[in-house]
């Protein structure tokens, strides 16, 4: 009984800490331009992959600025090693021209994240 309480308590602490960390890491970004529904997850990159902030900031992505507002925020730039393409080049991480639907969660994924209609094409 005591042991279980302890474990529960410890789990709760870890989860709270995790949530707090994610929040300080900026959470999920969903880009809408130039195409809708592209996700970048800080949690995946910082916590799961263990990358440090300065690997991207401010060399690839300026803090406080929105990348999608820039004209060169397109796939072609990624292939040339800009933005995500700095790592997603096929050697450090999967290449930018593969596994499209991993980051492109689409309009459907975007709606799901924003709590919209999950299956909007369904009969009812």
């Amino acid at each position: 009984m005591t042991l279980r309480t302890l474990v529960t308590f410890a789990t709760a602490i870890i989860m709270t800490a995790g949530a707090a960390l994610a929040a300080t890491h900026g959470g999920d970004i969903v880009y809408e331009k130039p195409v809708k529904g592209v996700i970048f997850s800080h949690k995946t990159h910082v916590e799961d992959k263990g990358l440090s902030c300065d690997m991207c900031h401010n060399r690839l992505f300026e803090m406080g600025k929105v990348a999608q507002e820039k004209a060169d925020f397109v796939m072609e730039s990624l292939y040339q090693g800009k933005y995500c393409g700095a790592c997603h080049n096929g050697s450090m991480a999967f290449a930018s021209n593969t596994r499209c639907a991993t980051c492109h969660i689409g309009v459907k994924g975007q709606k799901r994240l924003s709590g919209g209609d999950k299956h909007d094409k369904k009969g009812h």
Partner: peptide
Amino acid sequence: VNEYKHLMDY
């Protein structure tokens, strides 16, 4: 696919 995983209702 997600849209048509289950039987539909009427």
